[in-house]
Simulated scan of single mutants.
Amino acid sequence: MTRLPDAPRHVVPGTAEASAVLRALVRDGWHTREGFALPDPAWDVTGAKLVLYGRVADLDTVQLAVLAAARGAGVVAVADLDGVVGRALLDDLRRLGPVETGGGDTADDPVARLVPEQRALLERLAAGDTIAAAAAAEFLSLRTANRRIAEARALLGVRTTREAVLAYLRQRRPSP
Results as ranks from 00 to 15, higher is better:
R3M: 13
A7N: 06
R9S: 03
V11Y: 05
V12F: 05
S19V: 05
D28H: 14
D28K: 13
G29T: 05
G29E: 10
H31V: 15
T32D: 02
E34T: 11
L38N: 04
D40N: 15
W43M: 14
T46L: 13
L50R: 05
V51N: 04
Y53L: 02
V56I: 06
L64E: 12
A65S: 01
A68D: 05
G72D: 08
V76W: 01
A77C: 06
A79Y: 04
G86E: 06
A88Q: 09
V99P: 03
V99E: 03
E100Q: 12
E100W: 09
G102A: 07
G103I: 08
D109E: 04
V111E: 03
V111G: 01
L114C: 02
L114A: 02
V115I: 13
L121S: 08
L122T: 04
D129H: 15
I131R: 10
A133E: 10
F139S: 09
L140T: 10
L142G: 14
A145H: 08
N146M: 15
N146G: 13
R148L: 14
R148D: 07
I149P: 02
R153E: 09
G157C: 05
E163H: 09
E163A: 11
V165M: 03
V165R: 02
L166V: 14
R172L: 00
P176I: 10
P176V: 10
